[in-house]
Design a protein around this nucleic acid. Structure first.
Length: 376
DNA sequence: CACCCGTGGGT
DNA sequence: TACCCAAGGGT
């Protein structure tokens, strides 16, 4: 039976019995949880951290994937998830690792406070919870790096708790379904309450993942595929014809361009590097010496912040610039290179690392760009 | 509450 | 091109 046939067959029945028939065919509000799960059972995505349908999820894998997926695409997470699980098969293994090893493995994925909290969380679970994750939303919420969304997601997906995590996908689906006019983030409580009405009596984790899959594949930010949506008939925004305008939110302001200089000093087969402060931007990550990054920073002012090394007198400016875009500002770095005589000491707080082993360092992508530009 | 915090891909 | 967006959390 085609979808059109099914709709044609079901439509009259709703009219015959005005009270609760809508609950059974899934088109009315009370029937949505069942319709959602039916859609999920046919169209659920196969993902590395998602076990086969009907089989229990491993809390460690769920937690690891949820942390990695925060503000990060499924595609980007895939290889990192596999690497982490292969190297640290259990939360106790991860807790026993050094933070630096974790940062090195995380390098390139971004939002490095997640990696620091990931490690702290693994230590806490291993040492304070006997290697097992708390199985309640409240218990999970107390762990480092686990906020309201992640606590609800783990509770529902790994432990079957009847709670609805609300992520960006679900905010979009729900705000369209009910045409929520209030802007984010003010609308969050309302959207949360509406999302909870989509929870099935059992299979809470599948209800949540179904909404996320729906948001990722059908109810997309641009050009949603409404014709394929299980909620098509009852979606207020689609009926109004402006689904794409939801969720409402204030436009973000783009940050001002900042400029600076990076200094790549080569001594034989090594490069001079240092470690950034533990917190803040790129906290705890490895970098080459560089100037402050300031809006309107002149090339001369930036260059004047080069590190002082005995034996290094001539800086060579590489042609072009390295550009990078952070969440709240774009950055343009001029790159200078210099050769240091063999035996040159690294200044305080800096060290020499072999160029051949740079790939193993906790280098954020910005610094990989700088080094690639300098050593090209 | 507003801001900070990476990176890559899509339109 | 210049945005927008992605399974958000911390402060």
């Amino acid at each position: 039976m085609s979808i059109a046939d099914r709709r044609a067959a079901l439509a009259p029945r709703r009219k015959q019995s005005p009270v609760n028939t809508a609950n059974e065919d899934g088109a009315g509000p009370a029937g949505r949880p069942a319709a959602l799960l039916a859609w999920y059972d046919r169209h659920r995505r196969t993902l590395p951290w998602r076990p086969p349908a009907g089989t229990p999820a491993d809390p460690y894998a769920v937690w690891l994937s949820e942390i990695m997926l925060q503000q990060t695409t499924v595609r980007a997470v895939g290889p990192y998830f596999a690497k982490f699980l292969a190297r640290w098969p259990s939360v106790a293994d991860l807790g026993a690792a050094s933070l630096d090893d974790v940062l090195r493995m995380w390098a390139g994925l971004g939002y490095y406070s997640r990696a620091r909290n990931l490690h702290a969380c693994a230590v806490a679970v291993a040492t304070q919870h006997g290697g097992r994750f708390p199985d309640t939303e409240e218990g999970l919420r107390a762990l480092p790096g686990v906020g309201p969304y992640t606590a609800a997601a783990i509770a529902a997906i790994a432990f079957g708790r009847r709670t609805m995590p609300v992520d960006g996908n679900i905010e979009r689906v729900v705000s369209r379904l009910y045409a929520v006019e209030e802007e984010l983030p003010k609308a969050k409580p309302r959207i949360k309450a509406l999302a909870e009405t989509l929870l099935a009596d059992s299979r809470a984790g599948d209800s949540a993942q179904a909404l996320m899959d729906l948001g990722a594949t059908i109810c997309t930010p641009k050009k949603p595929a409404c014709a394929l949506c299980p909620f098509m008939e009852g979606c207020t925004a689609r009926l109004r014809g402006d689904a794409e305008s939801f969720p409402r939110k204030a436009p973000k302001k783009t940050g001002e361009l900042r400029r600076g200089a990076a200094f790549v000093v080569v001594r034989g087969d090594s490069v001079l590097v240092r470690t950034r402060e533990a917190k803040g931007l790129l906290g705890g990550m490895t970098e080459v010496p560089n100037s402050e990054w300031l809006a309107g920073h002149s090339d001369a002012a930036a260059r004047a912040q080069a590190p002082q090394l005995s034996g290094v007198t001539r800086w060579h400016r590489k042609a072009g610039v390295v550009t990078h875009v952070f969440t709240h500002f774009p950055l343009e770095l001029v790159v200078y290179t210099a050769q240091a005589p063999s035996g040159t000491r690294a200044p305080a707080g800096m060290r020499w690392v072999k160029i051949a082993t740079l790939a193993d360092e906790a280098l954020p992508n910005l610094m990989r760009k700088v080094l690639a530009h300098a050593l090209d």
